[in-house]
Measured scan of single mutants.
Amino acid sequence: VTLFVALYDYEARTEDDLSFHKGSKFQILNSSEGDWWEARSLTTGETGYIPSNYVAPV
């Protein structure tokens, strides 16, 4: 499992996005959609889309 960590805070703009804070960790579920990845937050357990340029591999 590849884990990613948030580099910045992000406020969701749609109900499909995940809001998160810098330092939040994610499991990436689908990275084939270009700049928006489907991810599960390891902090909240919620699933949604995150901007790929806001995260980096742990």
Score class of each variant (00 low, 15 high):
Tyr8Met: 09
Arg13Ile: 11
Thr43His: 11
Leu42Arg: 03
Arg40His: 08
Gly45Lys: 05
Tyr8Glu: 07
Val58Lys: 04
Ser32Gly: 11
Ser19Cys: 06
Tyr49Ala: 05
Tyr49Ile: 09
Phe20Tyr: 01
Ser31Pro: 10
Arg13Asn: 09
Glu33Ile: 11
Ala6Ser: 05
Asp35Val: 10
His21Gln: 14
Ser31Met: 15
Tyr8Lys: 07
Glu33His: 14
Phe26Met: 06
Trp37Met: 06
Leu29Gly: 03
Gln27Gly: 03
Val58Trp: 14
Gly45Ala: 05
Ala6Gln: 01
Val55Asp: 01
Leu3His: 09
Pro57Lys: 08
Val5Arg: 04
Thr43Lys: 09
Ile50Cys: 04
Glu33Asn: 15
Pro51Asp: 04
Leu3Glu: 09
Trp36Asp: 03
Leu42Glu: 07
Phe20Gln: 00
Glu33Phe: 12
Leu42Phe: 07
Gly34Val: 12
Ile50Asn: 01
Glu46Lys: 12
Leu3Pro: 05
Gly23Tyr: 06
His21Leu: 14
Val55Thr: 03
Glu46Ser: 07
Leu3Phe: 12
Asp17Pro: 02
Ala6Ile: 02
Phe4Asn: 01
Thr43Trp: 07
Thr14Asp: 11
Gly45His: 06
Phe4Gly: 03
Pro51Ala: 04
Phe20Ser: 01
Asn30Tyr: 07
Ser31Thr: 13
Asp17Glu: 15
Gln27Ile: 15
Leu42Lys: 03
Trp36Ile: 07
Ser52Phe: 08
Glu46Ile: 08
Phe4Lys: 01
Thr43Ala: 13
Ser32Met: 12
Gln27Asn: 06
Ala39Ile: 04
Glu38Arg: 12
Trp37Gly: 00
His21Asp: 09
Thr47Trp: 09
Leu29Ser: 05
Ala6Trp: 02
Gly48Gln: 02
Thr2Ile: 13
Thr43Met: 10
His21Ala: 13
Glu11Trp: 09
Tyr54Val: 05
Glu11His: 10
Lys25Cys: 14
Trp37Arg: 02
Phe26Thr: 00
Ser41Glu: 10
Pro57Asn: 05
Glu15Gly: 13
Tyr10Leu: 02
Lys25Thr: 12
Ser19Glu: 04
Asp35Ile: 10
Gln27Arg: 08
Ala39Asn: 00
Val55Trp: 02
Leu18Thr: 03
Thr2Phe: 11
Gly23Pro: 00
Leu7Val: 07
Pro51Thr: 02
Ile50Arg: 00
Arg13Leu: 11
His21Met: 13
Trp37Asp: 00
Ser19Gln: 04
Leu3Asp: 06
Ile28Leu: 06
Val5Met: 08
Thr2Tyr: 12
Phe20Leu: 04
Thr47Val: 15
Phe4Tyr: 15
Val58Gln: 07
Ile28Arg: 04
Ala56Gly: 08
Val5Cys: 08
Lys22Trp: 05
Asp17Ile: 12
Ala39Asp: 00
Arg40Lys: 11
Thr43Ile: 10
Gly48Cys: 04
Asn30Met: 07
Ala6His: 01
Asp16Asn: 15
Lys25Tyr: 15
Val1Met: 13
Leu7Asp: 01
Val55Arg: 00
Asp16Tyr: 15
Val55Asn: 00
Gln27Ser: 07
Trp37Phe: 07
Asp9Val: 03
Ser31Asp: 13
Arg40Pro: 00
Glu33Tyr: 12
Glu33Met: 14
Phe26Ser: 00
Glu11Pro: 04
Val1Asn: 13
Phe26Val: 03
Ser24Phe: 11
Ala39Met: 05
Asn53Gln: 11
Pro57Leu: 09
Val55Ile: 10
Leu29Cys: 08
Lys22Met: 08
Trp37Lys: 02
Glu46Tyr: 07
Ala12His: 05
Asp35Gln: 11
Phe20Asp: 00
Asp17Leu: 10
Asp16Gln: 14
Tyr54Ser: 10
Ile50Met: 02
Tyr49Asn: 07
Glu33Lys: 14
Tyr10Pro: 00
Lys25Ile: 15
Trp36Ala: 05
Gly23Ala: 03
Gly34Arg: 12
Gly48Phe: 04
Leu29Val: 08
Thr43Arg: 09
Phe4Leu: 04
Asp9Ala: 07
Leu18Tyr: 05
Phe4Arg: 02
Thr2Gln: 13
Leu3Tyr: 13
Ser31Trp: 13
Glu46Met: 10
Tyr54Thr: 05
Asn53Ile: 09
Leu42Asp: 04
His21Trp: 10
Glu15Val: 12
Phe4Glu: 00
Ser32Tyr: 10
Gln27Leu: 15
Val58Glu: 10
Tyr8His: 08
Ala12Arg: 09
Phe4Met: 08
Ser41Ala: 09
Trp36Gly: 02
Ile28Met: 04
Asp9Met: 04
Asp17Tyr: 14
Tyr49Cys: 11
Phe20Trp: 01
Leu29Trp: 06
Ala6Asn: 00
Asp9Ser: 09
Gly48Asp: 01
Glu15Arg: 11
Ile50His: 01
Glu15Phe: 10
Thr47Ala: 06
Phe26Arg: 00
Arg13Trp: 07
Tyr8Trp: 12
Leu29Ala: 05
Asn53Pro: 06
Ser24Trp: 15
Ser52Asp: 01
Phe20Cys: 02
Pro57Cys: 06
Tyr49Gln: 08
Val1Phe: 14
Lys22Asp: 01
